[in-house]
């Protein structure tokens, strides 16, 4: 089993921090927020690296199979319009998460956070009869007349409609399943293996090399960014005015930019020194075995059956 590099293990979680002075709270929000963004990238990368090494069912599969599952799966989920079939898929994905030995609570906490942002909040207006007219499920306001509010026509009776609930749920559960499947594949496959699998599926080699290089560099420079902001945070204790804060952010930005620019030239020279001549190879790749093929076929059969039945019998 590959060891996790030691420098990845010394990253402490960054917490939001408030300073009180004369009963007034000062939040170094832009520093904290930037630290949170960089910390999130590092912790996610480390977590994925670690969870991809668990001895679960999906971790045993060839990355090519998992990448195909991701592509076929997200397409299939978009094509199934039956809420019941989507619920069955949710259960199957849940089983895959459990058999992949991922921590269910933290996995679904992340999935549901993303579902809230991308699935639930944007679909809230669909529940109401001003967007989806239909049979009333819950009456909210009954006024004497209808009126126009900005881009909406609000009818004289405002209620949540059964049709609205159905449409909103259908969209929300599609987002839930797509996200759960995507995160499941991402958490059970190392990033470098996803790229290798994409190269076997004939994705442009030059594009994949750029992705690989960029992913490594983002990690390095995120660490630079985090260290820089942590240093700043440890030195600062008073409220920062807007001009000063923009100056600070600008300086940090310039630091990162100069470091990336400088490193680009060094990397190019290092690549040439090691004999790079433009030929791109993505290293050793595992061959597909019987289990891989069987699993992929089973996945495709289940999904295509669901798509076919849902569409042929128009189950919405």
């Amino acid at each position: 089993m590959t060891e996790i590099p030691s420098f990845l293990l010394i990253n402490n979680p960054v917490t939001l921090h408030e300073v009180k002075k004369n009963d007034k709270k000062f939040r170094f929000s832009f520093i904290e927020q930037t630290l949170n963004s960089s910390g999130k990238f590092i912790s996610t990368t480390v977590f994925q690296y670690h969870s991809a090494l668990f001895k679960g069912i999906l971790q045993q599969l060839n990355p090519v199979v998992k990448l195909l599952m991701l592509l076929v799966g997200t397409t299939g989920i978009a094509l199934i319009h039956s809420v019941l079939f989507q619920l069955i898929l949710s259960f199957l994905i849940f089983l895959l998460v459990a058999f992949s030995k991922l921590r269910l609570r933290s996995f679904y906490k992340r999935v549901l956070t993303l579902v809230l942002i991308f699935g639930i909040i944007p679909t809230l207006p669909i529940y109401f009869n001003w967007i989806t007219p239909g049979k009333p499920a819950l009456e909210l306001i009954k006024s004497g007349c209808s009126f126009n509010f900005w881009i909406y026509h609000v009818p004289n009776s405002l209620y949540i409609s059964y049709e609205g609930i159905h449409h909103a749920l259908r969209l929300e559960i599609k987002v839930l399943n797509s996200l759960a499947l995507s995160l499941l594949i991402i958490h059970t496959t190392q990033f470098v293996d996803i790229v290798k699998a994409a190269s076997r599926l004939k994705a442009p080699a030059i594009f994949l090399l750029i992705i690989t290089l960029s992913h490594k560099l983002i990690f390095i420079f995120t660490k630079v960014l985090e260290d820089s902001f942590l240093g700043l945070k440890s030195r600062w204790w008073r409220k920062i005015d807007e001009n000063a804060s923009r100056q600070i952010v600008g300086n940090r930005f310039l630091l990162v930019f100069n470091k990336t620019w400088h490193r680009y030239d060094q990397t190019y020279k290092a690549m040439i020194a090691r004999g790079f001549n433009g030929t791109i190879e993505h290293g050793y790749q595992k061959q597909l075995n019987r289990l891989d093929i069987l699993f992929l076929l089973l996945f495709i059969v289940v999904l295509s059956t669901a798509v076919t039945i849902s569409n042929v019998f128009q189950l919405y």
């Binding site: 929000s29 832009f30 927020q33 930037t34 963004s37 960089s38 990238f41 090399l209 750029i210 992705i211 290089l213 960029s214 560099l217 983002i218 420079f221 995120t222 960014l225 952010v249 940090r252 930005f253 990162v256 930019f257 990336t260 620019w261 490193r263 680009y264 990397t267």
Partner: peptide, 14 residues
């Protein structure tokens, strides 16, 4: 590769 990393990092600056 560096341009992509730079582009990604811009999104991290709050």
């Amino acid at each position: 590769g560096f341009a992509s990393a730079f582009s990604f990092l811009i999104m991290m600056f709050n």
